[in-house]
């Protein structure tokens, strides 16, 4: 699954650690989501969407 998390984070000048604190997950989790190694659960995807004030579809989209 592709996502815009890295871009959204960069727009806010946040490090992975900062985003991790906002989401209450580890920095490794943020890194794994950004690089597509981990697909977040629905609850975490909703937390991410709420944090950036976007819908889930505006952040995450499938390969096609």
């Amino acid at each position: 699954m592709n996502n815009r998390l890295k871009i959204l984070r960069a727009e806010r000048d946040w490090s992975q650690a900062t985003l991790a604190v906002h989401l209450d997950v580890s920095r490794q989790a943020v890194n794994a989501i950004e690089t597509g190694k981990h697909d977040p659960s629905l609850p975490l995807a909703f937390r991410i969407a709420r944090l950036f004030d976007l819908s889930i579809e505006e952040i995450f989209h499938d390969q096609n």
């Binding site: 000048d13 490090s15 992975q16 920095r27 890194n31």
Partner: peptide, 13 residues
């Protein structure tokens, strides 16, 4: 600055 913070976070793991 964005690049700098990003690089920091990439090397941290």
């Amino acid at each position: 600055k964005i690049d700098a913070t990003h690089n920091l976070s990439e090397s941290a793991p």
